[in-house]
Design a protein around this nucleic acid. Structure first.
Lengths: 115, 115
DNA sequence: AATTTCGGTTACCTTTTGGTTACTTGTATT
DNA sequence: AATACAAGTAACCAAAAGGTAACCGAAATT
């Protein structure tokens, strides 16, 4: 990595990726959607520790990015279904690699000691 | 990703990885060290936009994690050399994948529109 | 005698991130 | 008539992350 990438941090490809999928919840949400279509409430159910405010915000941001597709059914009570766009799906192998390293002995040892 | 991973977020491998290498600077620092041995000042030079306070803090944290190796020479002025441990080097392929996705048309487009 | 060098530390401040609680909407159910 | 439902939104708050500027120590250089 040469320094030209870092003068403006967004010229660095690693930083670009992290600024798009970084943060506490985005990679988890993307991974949870995966290849399926899933309702807001279901996402909230399988990620119980996220607040619906944050879930809604992250989904909206990723929808703006074009990673997430949102379909709203005009019913009452409302129904909204989320899925990944092709761009979003292009992240799944990377997320899988993140998960692989997280299952490493190294990662588990670090977490056990410092969490 | 099933919900058992998320009740305690650190049971989720993706979250484990992100909690270790997440943040604004850690992946860049790891990538900059790479396979070489590099002095503190040199790192600061090739990542000019990081403050030395933050650089020192991140290095110390990653040293505690066992990802980074630090050798202090008792000279004056001081000299300190950093390199990756084997555990740290095990992250390089993943960082490379992060960079690959960041070089994607998709990533560049998103950054261009929203940065 | 003053300045430079290197690898930090300290105190302080701002920004960002994420969390909590309450509320909305219109239909259907109790 | 009151309540439940799904998918949020709004107002407010706490914590964490990150940035800035000043300082340190002892030897070498000017």
């Amino acid at each position: 990595m040469s320094s030209k990438f870092i003068d403006n941090p967004l010229n660095c490809p690693v930083t670009r990726t992290m600024s798009i999928i970084g943060g506490k919840w985005k990679p988890i949400i993307l991974n949870c959607i995966g290849d399926r279509t899933i309702r807001f409430g279901k996402l909230n159910q399988i990620i119980p520790s996220i607040s619906n405010k944050v879930l809604a915000g992250e989904l909206k941001e990723m929808e703006h990015y074009g990673l997430v597709h949102r379909i709203e059914f005009t019913e009452m009570p409302p129904r909204v279904e989320y899925s990944l766009t092709n761009d979003g799906k292009s992240l799944l192998p990377l997320l899988h690699e993140l998960a692989n390293w997280g299952n490493t002995h190294t990662a588990k040892k670090i977490i056990k000691e410092f969490a």
